[in-house]
Design a protein around this nucleic acid. Sequence first.
DNA 1: ATAGGGTTAG
Length: 813
Amino acid sequence: MYSHHSSPRFFTFLVTRSFSSKARANRYASQLQLCCLQSPISCSFARTVHAHMIASGFKPCGHILNRLIYIYCKSSMLAYARHLFDEILQPDIVARTTLISAYSTTGNLKLAREIFCETPLHVRDTVFYNAMITAYSHNNDGHAAIELFRDMRRNDFSPDNFTFTSVIGALALVAENERQCLQLHCAVVKSGTAFVTSVLNALISTYVKCASSPSVISSSLMGVARRLFDDMPEKDDLSWTTIITGYVKNDDLDSARELFDGNGMCEKMVVAWNAMISGYMHRGLYKEALEMFRKMYLSGMQLDEFTFTSIISVCANAGFFQLGKELHAYILKTEVNPSPDFSLPVNNALITLYWRCGRVDEAREIFNYMPVRDLVSWNAILSGYVNAGRIKEAKSFFEEMPEKNILTWTVMISGLAQNGFGEEGLKLFNQMKILGFEPCDYAFAGAITSCAVLGTLEHGRQLHAQLVRFGFDSSLSAGNALITMYARCGVVEAAHSLFLTMPCVDSVSWNAMIAALGQHGHGGQAIELFEEMLAEGILPDRITFLTVLSACSHAGLVKEGHHYFNSMYAVYGIIPGEDHYARVIDLLCRAGKFSEAKSVMESMPVEPGAPIWEALLAGCRIHGNMDIGIKAAEQLFELKPEHDGTYVQLSNMYAVAGRWADVAKVRKLMRDRGVKKEPGCSWLEVENMVHVFLVDDAVHPEVHAVYNYLDKLCQEMKKLGYVPDTKFVLHDMEFDQKEYALSTHSEKLAVAFGLMKLPRGATIRVFKNLRICGDCHNAIKYMSEVVRREIVVRDGKRFHHFKDGECSCGDYW
DNA sequence: ATAGGGTTAG
């Protein structure tokens, strides 16, 4: 019944009623004394003794009660302890002290403080003060701890080494800069505790903390920490882990590794291993992290939750799904009680692993089975839905969330933006601010992306100004979002100057800028920039190639595009995906090189899917290549029978050839097959029609009929309340500007657009087109159209938003 | 003393 620590004397040492009450008290007291001598304290026996007292009607005196309180506190049976504490007339200082430290460990500072305050001055002692100072210190209230220390000195209690250690811990907590670090250092020296290991540990950890704070530029503080560490008379586990994790935090993995590999450190220091693994993980050095993990595992060390959390994150970030799944299975198998609450962070990391590897539903299952969840878990699932484009579920999940933080909002805002819901994204951004959340640069990035989607340049500029005011002007993610925003709103120049002035750029910035140039018909410049990127030693990724291939395609740089496509795998080892193949085929078909496109298709490792046929069909549409076009459309009818876009492309192909009877046939076919035409599809039609006029110099005799048709479509869409997505329009207008300029249809287009009321971004395009054609009259007309439709006027702290003849105002951000 | 959730480019 008792642990093997229990002495057999416990059983023979019974207290019987025949004893005098004094003798009974003595015996109980010695029994409790015995309990305390056990390690750990034998609470169960103390409870038996206590029960015996109650059963036999014995009224314990203060001494015994104090002892019981002590035992209960030490065994974390706080409710019992408190009960006795409230009954006792005069709790002694030991009981008070233990209760304070017990409350401190459970984080209940308020109760600890209550006991402290109601203890009269004359019964207090140094240990009692120490307990309260430590309580503050351990609960991260350094200022209160320091204040209490001052109070202690005022009341003439003499501090001991424990006091100093605690106070130094408190000073360490509040130290935030180099000056406070030095103050602490002086305090240590003055108190004469500069040889005490725990004090030195605290001091070192303070230097480490200040060294990694963002305001400190030099690594000199880390140097001081290192000297203190080297000179320590005695190092313990904590000293080693403090210095190693310090280097990891300061992004000096080499120094950390050097200490880690050198002799002197106890091999079995799990924390140091974990710190190294997490350091590699955060730096994106997944291979090194895995290697470390492997070594750790092979050396037979006990892997803990920290290890698993970090290494699962490695799998999630690097896409090692197989390994991640094996680790998941391993965790479930090795857990003593296969409890799913192994650890909250482990489960959260698992959620991320699953959704990042495309298994949102499995991630959700983990979430559902988790007995305890926190905000991180909720945010992780939200990201999963958003990333999978499952906006409906994301939205309702977002609403369901019991709590939100800035991250939650950021995920939702950028999720909406990325899925084309620009307006909702902006609305959410404002709502977030109204609710008092300070936007971070990521949140700004989401809002800016929303503007990019909507093509609302003025709003985007305001956000840019706002960003600068918030001090985020050097933010990478926001800067990258701005590049795209300016590009999509038609001001590549702004995008380019931003790109040039950004303090640091990454491959995303390069990709964005290359794309910006490519989309505006500056294919040659896009390729120049790409070459520059390569010259700077920045490795292109699969997205770089997508962008470059598009740029080549739009600029008609067939040879270059083909060359880059071939270099993808040969030089950079990037296996072309179906999307890359689709772009090359698009490139070739736009140039009319159908036989080359055919050979590329034949070289594909897998059967060509829908994107390939779509590219082919689009090419056929431009060139009026009926035979292949019809074949491609047939393939698409099989692969995506519900897809309305195929019909649109096919009918436009006939339109290019002037075969209006066939256009009508396609529409009939669509109706007969019961394919629903979405409002967006109508816009696609409009946009494609526009494209037909842009690329074809010949005036179709039926052109007026088409204008009428477009007009009808527009009215129909207006009735449906459909707001077209600028992205579509821009996408289809991204052809070489030269082609626009050469087009003889600018004026007619202007008339058509005038009827149609295009979204703002497209209107800007028309304006630019007219400008290039030298059609000043219509250009001015369209510019004023742009201005009339949406303009924001600032007026002190208020803004007035004019849109479609209506004005709304509000606080200026 | 070590761990988990975000962003931007197509």
